[in-house]
Design a binder for these strands. Structure first.
Lengths: 153, 153
DNA sequence: GCACAAACGTTAGTGACACCAACGATCGGA
DNA sequence: TCCGATCGTTGGTGTCACTAACGTTTGTGC
């Protein structure tokens, strides 16, 4: 029941940068999802584990800000990670509103597994590009993204 | 309650092409959604109308293949478009399994409105890039997308 | 001619991601 | 001490993509 390959692509779509970006993102998302699903994980898990590993223990709110995940979604994702003991949630003694979330040793092992998968995915995704082109693409996307990350400020 | 601007971005994420693409797509998607919502439309509507305008009347299945929209989602989107009389659904006399979907004059007017909105969105989205850089980005994305569009075939 | 596989439209449901609204609890500054 | 802000949590929404199952119709092989 999967969506079949297109007969043809309307030029009205094929020329639109927004369409190219979102469609490429769909493909990238599929590769990432499949890669992570093999280890029973999803994007939010990697983003949270990587953020924890890089910045150390943090409150859920800080975690959300850093990983770009909405606070209410952080709750659900942390529940899933905590259940498998990849993170530990403990009340912050110095501020009883907060939970301090810490990555565990098992969490670090899982993170390494996820990173490995994702490295393969990058290679798959950018397969048709030369190293130089990959760098170009990365640079251009980073510029666009940066511009829309703090446009108002 | 919107997701606040990030404090910092984990380098583990910022360096991943798949992350750059999907995050940029999120921004692009927001711009597109907002632009189309102003005319009470969404992405699927534009894709269907553009496909109809470019290739002429077609069955729903063909429409789905060309626009890259899953057949079951075509049904719902066409319901919405038909309700506002942007398209007409008529049984195909030569094959009673099929519906022949045709864009109406009102549908073409709506399509022009959507195209106008989307043109503005492209400019917003790529604001930080020079015309040459925009072309580079478009070209690179098209290459990546093409590679993942028919990998099996 | 007839069985059977394939295509078509439709309904109903899933999953990932991003987002909103409201709540009780807690904190901190005026 | 009051009041606004922050924190975690719950329960919803929207978009896009996809799956499963169904009854109908078509065309092909036999």
């Amino acid at each position: 029941m999967e969506n079949p390959e297109p007969d043809v692509v309307p030029t009205r779509l094929a020329g639109l940068p927004s369409w190219l970006i979102t469609q490429t993102a769909v493909r990238a998302g599929r590769l990432v999802s499949d890669g992570l699903a093999a280890v029973d994980a999803r994007g939010y898990h990697f983003r949270l584990l990587a953020t924890l590993d890089e910045f150390g223990p943090a409150s859920q709110a800080a975690l959300g800000r850093r990983s770009g995940i909405h606070v209410s979604d952080v709750v659900a994702a942390l529940n899933e990670l905590a259940e498998r003991e990849f993170v530990v949630r403990a009340p912050d003694p110095s501020d009883r509103r907060r939970n301090v979330v810490t990555i565990t040793a098992a969490g670090r092992r899982q993170l390494r597994r996820l990173e490995k998968r994702l490295a393969e995915v990058q290679d798959d995704l950018l397969a048709p590009l030369t190293p130089d082109e990959r760098a170009d693409l990365t640079r251009l996307l980073a510029r666009v993204l940066a511009h829309h990350t703090r446009p108002s400020v």
